[in-house]
Design a protein around this nucleic acid. Sequence first.
RNA 1: CGGAGCGUGGCGCAGCCCGGUAGCGCACCACAAUGGGGUUGUGGGGGUCGCAAGUUCAAAUCUUGUCGCUCCGACCA
Length: 487
Amino acid sequence: MSQGLPDRSNDFSAWYTQIVNRAGLADYGPVKGTMVIKPYGYQLWENIREIFDKMIKDTGHVNAYFPLFIPKSFLAKEAEHVEGFAKECAVVTHTRLKSDDLKGVVVDPESKLEEEIIVRPTSETVIWSMYKKWIQSHRDLPVLINQWANVVRWEMRTRLFLRTSEFLWQEGHTAHSTPEEAEQETLDILELYRELAEDYLAIPVFTGLKTDSEKFAGAERTYCIEAMMGDKRALQAGTSHNLGQNFAKAFDVTFQTKDNKEEFVWATSWGISTRLIGAVILTHGDDKGLRLPPRIAPIQLVIIPIAKNEEEKDLKNYLEPITAALKKSKIRVYEDWTNNSPGFKFNEWEMKGVPLRMEVGPRDIKEQKVVLARRDEKGKLSIPKDDVIDNVQRLLDNIQLKLITQARDFRDKNTHIVKEYDDFKSIISKGGFVRCGWDGNSETEAKIKQDTKATIRCIPFDEDPKELTCVLTGHKAKHEVIFARAY
RNA sequence: CGGAGCGUGGCGCAGCCCGGUAGCGCACCACAAUGGGGUUGUGGGGGUCGCAAGUUCAAAUCUUGUCGCUCCGACCA
């Protein structure tokens, strides 16, 4: 399409790769599958992080940091947990190199470790080894800790933001004295995730429970938020796990109750990652590039000055109070004085997804006006310069609202209620979500996955399976579920 | 690890079949003009054609080997 971007409706994945690159978000690092997050992409992450960090602090959580390295033996303590992560761990076996005449540098065999070290794929095990020391009494509970960190999962096939060997995330790890409290925590966090996705990222999500085959390795129950991307595939955007007493038992973490009994503590863990940035791109992007929701956009308003060399000084004077006022109103604003043509800049900033653009040139100075253009709509608006702040604020709010509305309409239009397996197959092959009955049998689930590549994204909270039959077997449905092909 | 394809300035590619001076677009540097939807002009820098061996007067091009990458399957926030 324009700017030589690949046609989005034809080759969604080529389009995605180009956008990530050309909008200046990220690139692959030298080690295969690793990601470099460039400044513009990182600012996006910082904005998301700041919003969620405030949410969890407001709900009584605190931040801490645990080590990157985990003794290999820790991973084996929880049976399902090893099972889930063993195949994708980076392992440290030696502690130094030495120079070699032929090969330059080699691993020094003398430095081999007694016990190998795992680079964390997730931190449950280190954290619970510490909780054992910290928790003795019900008075020590709950423990509500979050950490912002990187984790490593040695993925075979990677894609920027969606799946890389190393990624940034937050992981919360809480300990409670009752199962009810742990369950409540799990659900409360899921609600924060929903709020983050919908109210800030403008991504509508389904909330619900994962099936046993899709749940986190070591969890009793996994809840998730699931979103539909622009190509109608599903993306898991966040998960919240009720770990029951699994990790407490594995790491022998007990506490004394009020009536002096000893009990294992109840645990949760939950996480969202830089994958959310991928979700934003895949949800809101269009033929011209990225579209960023104003509430997380690193730049909310870009100003394009239009002036000949000799007019530059006048223009700077004209703009100075306007920009100052915008900054004072906490609007993230940037003046682009680079030496490109205006048309080039328009396209450039549209690609980068900036929600609002202001054009200012000699014409506007004469009329004491500015021109505003929305990223999500055609047309331009000429307004008096004294009305800039009001208009900018109003338009940003409006764009935020429009993005979520558009995304929700798209998702709803492509979510189908289905009874027959033939309909199921035809919809899945064209792309989209299917709501249908499921007999609760994991073999049924596996069969459908094999047939169609679709998986159960979640058992939605608002399910109503009473009248339903299983889409594959025709047996009485145990649950109403949402099926889709996923990233 | 199975199936397909690709390695030529920073990026994207042509040249290879039929051996003979390494080319194009973009990007980059300099100067000038231009500036309200990817703006021109002029000049300039940068590549032992993935690597190795072979055939030949001569190899980006032919032969053999080797290494690397991408895409599709099994794994996955």
